[in-house]
Structures are given as C-alpha cells and as structure tokens.
Design a protein around this nucleic acid. Structure first.
Lengths: 121, 121
DNA sequence: CTGGATCCCGAATGATACTG
DNA sequence: CAGTATCATTCGGGATCCAG
C-alpha cells in the first residue's frame, strides 16, 4: 500500500492512507478504545494476524494510530487512535457508516444490520 | 472494482464504493457543479477517458452520481452529484481534504498546496 | 512457552496501454 | 468508446523469527 509521489489534492492522499480491505474496519473498531492485537483479531471477523499487523503498521506510519508497549509478563501491546488524525478520520468514517446504513435500509437489507453496526453517540 | 457479498459493517460497503484511484477526485471535482465528460477529462490531471467512464459508471450505479442527457446538437451529457448520497459523501471527503491539508502543513509541504485544493465554503 | 512482528511466494484484482 | 493484453499492486497462507 504505497503512497504515490504526487497527488492532485490532499483528499487523495488521505484516501490512499486509509484504503485497503481492512483499514476502515480497524479504525472503526478502535473508536471503542485501546486494545491489543489479539483482541482486535477476535473482534474483526475474518482478519488474520498478518493482515492486521500490516495495516496497523501503515496506520501508525501515517499518524492515525499509535501503540504502547507494556514491558512485563505476559507481553502486552495496545493500539489506539491518535488524538488528532485518528479522531478526525473517525468523523469521516461516521458519515460513511451513516450513508451505508441508509443505503441498506432503502434497498431492503435492514436485516444486514446488527448491533455492532450502530453508531454510538 | 467488485463489491463483496458480505460486509462486517455498512462503513465498509461505502468505502468500497468510493475506492479506486480516481473516484475521490471525480467526486471532488463534481462538487463544483454538473459538467461534461470532456470537461472532467480536462480538469482531472492524468486521467484517461476510459478510466473516467469506468469510474463514473460505478459511481452512478451506487447512487453517488447521476447523468442527464440533452438531446439535440451537439449531443451533450452532464454528470452531477446526487442530492442524497452524492452530497453526503462530499461531507466525508471534505473532512479528508481538511486532514490532508493539515498533514501537508505539519510536514512542511505547504508548497504542494495550490488554489485548486482550497475548500470552498 | 506466548504474543507480537517479519519474510517469501502464489493468486486475485486493479490500472494502463494497445487495438480495432 | 469496448475488448483484450500487460504490468503493478494487494491479499492471504504459512513458515519463521524475536522478545519477555
């Protein structure tokens, strides 16, 4: 998931930073608070540890996510959204979530909606 | 750019609908008003007519964009954002644009910013 | 030993060039 | 413009390595 050398506008840059099969859902899950790699792996259906690590690494590089390593036993690492970029991008994702829910409603797919889709205030 | 059969949450669905190298910038350009294929091709740096058509077709299928054909001479077609989904997704893109501009500022790349990047009120 | 992180490689998908 | 070929990128499996 390399960034381009040149972008026509900043919007494209950010879009590239959060694109990929798993990035949006990782960020979305992270809105609920800091958590460990293994918890993320459990919460995000279908993802493998490897994909998770790859995408987390990029999100960290770009500044949306940060991690804290607790030394001791057992080894523990926590991933969380950054104050600035992390929380800002959440706003954009919230809008997308909203559009998505409306879209499913209009197309008679409300049944696809479960509790885990609901936007918390 | 196929959609998946299943999504964990609506957000992912929408993200998939606007992913692709050219879709964000097409929507972004369309915020300025309805326009023709050739004008879009001119305004969007580096895009080919083929890519433009392919991506516009998808955006129309999903409901972000619509087109109106004016019969008569010369034949004229206009593409524009839909009232509902088109304008809603713009809000998300505006946030990304905002984050992108800040990002470039912080990293001393203000020079990358030209007038065409500015967000109109 | 456990949880976290990286590497290699084939398969699938996207972007672009080329052609009629 | 549509169809196809080609090239680049991403996805995902599995082995492997590192650190407490």
């Amino acid at each position: 998931m390399k960034l381009r050398d040149e972008y026509t506008c900043p919007l494209e840059l950010i879009h590239d930073m959060i694109k990929g099969k798993w990035k949006p859902i990782i960020l979305w899950r992270l809105r609920l608070g800091a958590t460990s790699l293994s918890k993320l792996e459990n919460d995000i259906d279908g993802i493998t540890q490897k994909m998770l690590l790859e995408h987390l690494k990029e999100l960290i590089d770009y500044g949306f996510v940060d991690k804290k390593t607790f030394s001791g036993y057992p080894l523990h690492v926590e991933y969380f959204l950054t104050e600035d970029m992390g929380n800002q991008i959440l706003e954009a994702l919230r809008i997308m979530q909203h559009i998505g829910i409306e879209y499913l409603r209009k197309n008679g797919m409300e049944n696809e909606l479960t509790e885990k889709h609901v936007i918390p205030d």
